[in-house]
Design a binder for these strands. Structure first.
Lengths: 197, 197
DNA sequence: CTTTATTGTATCGAGTCGATACCTTTTTAA
DNA sequence: TTAAAAAGGTATCGACTCGATACAATAAAG
C-alpha cells in the first residue's frame, strides 16, 4: 500500500532521518574496517552473511536476495572473495545449478575480528544493559515492520520459523526441506524463513 | 578507547546486525527512489542534507564532513547535481574560498517527494504512535552514543546547541557566529553543533 | 611578509552496480 | 517423452562512487 505524500507523520520523518544517519556512520566505519584487508563494505557484508546463514541459504542467489543486489554484481563480488582465499564454492550434490559458498578459516577469522565494527563496540559497551535491551528491541520491531509492510523476505533464524518443529525426542525438524536440524542449525538464518507469529 | 575482541557482548552483536540490515534495506529503497530521477543514493543524501542544514553549514566541506567522504568525491557529486539543475552555488560574501549550496525549487520538490522513502512510510504509518515514539527515542540514543563514544561531530539542530541562547526579548542568538537566529533557524542542523547536555 | 591552514577543483585507478546476453540444469507442461 | 519455461550462475559493458593525489586560490598566523 502506498500512502499519499500529504500525510506523512513527523515521527516517520524523524525515524527515517535517524536510520539514514546511522546508515552513513555504519558505511564509513565499515569502509575503514574493510580497508585493512583491502575489502569493500559490500564484500564484508557478504562474508558476514555467509557466517550466519544455514546450509540451505549459502548460494549466490541467496546472497543476492539478502543484499538486494543483482546476481551479476554478486557473482563479481564472490569472484574477488574467492581469489583472496576467503571462501570456496562447492557444487550441490542434488542440483547441479546450485553452488554452496563456504567461508575459509581465514574468512571466518576476518569476520570475527571485524564485525561488529570498532565504532559500535565502543558505543554499545558504554550503554547500560537495560538501554541495550531497549534499543535492540526497538530496532527489531522496526525491522520486522519494514519487512512485513513491504512483503520482503525475513531471513530469520530457524528457531522462529513456522516450518520448524520439535520431535518427541526433543530434536528439531524443518517441515519445508524435510530434514532434521541441530541445536546449532536453528540459530542460523534461512532464506526460506517465515515468521511463526 | 578500543575494547579487546574477546569481550564483545551479545547485545552489541545483535544491535550491530539490526543496524546493518536496516542499512541494507535503506540502501535498496534509496536506490529505487533515486532511480526515478536518475539519481544515486549518495546524491539523494546530499540533497536531503542541504534541505535540513542551516546557512553556516551548506558548503561542500560541511557536506563532506556530514557524509564522511573525501572532498574530491563530494565535489564531483555536486557538479552532477548542479548540472541537473537541482542546486546552485553562491560564493560567500566575506570568505571567497567558501561557496553556499542552495537547493533549487526543483531540488526541494524532489526531496519532499522522495524522503522519507516509500518503504519507511509504509512501515512507520502502520505502527501505533507509542511504538513510533519508543523507536525514535531508541534510535536517537544509539546515534548520540555512537557519535560521542567516537568523538564525531553531532550535526544537531541549533535548538539543542550549547552556543544557542535566548535574549530577553525572546529571540535566539548563536554565541559562536554571533548572529541572531530565527525560529525557523533553530530547527536546522549545524556543523558547529555541540550538545548542551 | 612569509608560512601555514582551509576551501575547493581536477584527474586517475580500483571497485560497485544494473542491464543485458548467454549458458547450463531443473522443472513444468504439452 | 519431449519441448518450453524457469532458475542458478557467469561474462561483459557503461555509468557512477570513492580515495588518493596534485594543484590553485584565499585566509589566517607568525
Amino acid at each position: 500500500m502506498v500512502f499519499s505524500r500529504y500525510y506523512i507523520g513527523m515521527k516517520t520523518t524523524e525515524i527515517y532521518s535517524f536510520v539514514e544517519r546511522l546508515s552513513e556512520l555504519l558505511k564509513v566505519d565499515s569502509r575503514q574496517a574493510g580497508a585493512e584487508f583491502g575489502l569493500q563494505p559490500v564484500q564484508l557484508e557478504v562474508l558476514h552473511y555467509l557466517s550466519i546463514c544455514n546450509r540451505y541459504s549459502d548460494s549466490p542467489m541467496a546472497v543476492t536476495e539478502y543484499l538486494g543486489l543483482t546476481k551479476g554484481t554478486v557473482s563479481q563480488t564472490l569472484k574477488v572473495l574467492e581469489s583472496k582465499g576467503l571462501l570456496s564454492k562447492q557444487l550441490d550434490v542434488n542440483d547441479k545449478r546450485i553452488s554452496h559458498l563456504k567461508l575459509s578459516v581465514k574468512g571466518a577469522r576476518l569476520i570475527n575480528k571485524t564485525i561488529p565494527t570498532a565504532m559500535f563496540v565502543n558505543a554499545c559497551e558504554l550503554l547500560p544493559e537495560k538501554n541495550q535491551t531497549e534499543i535492540a528491541s526497538s530496532l527489531k520491531q522496526l525491522l520486522i515492520t519494514l519487512l512485513e509492510a513491504n512483503n520482503l523476505k525475513t531471513f530469520g533464524v530457524c528457531k522462529s520459523c513456522r516450518y520448524n518443529s520439535k520431535t518427541k525426542e526433543g530434536n528439531y525438524f524443518c517441515r519445508l526441506v524435510e530434514q532434521p536440524l541441530s541445536a546449532d542449525d536453528i540459530q542460523l538464518i534461512c532464506r526460506e524463513h517465515s515468521n511463526s507469529d
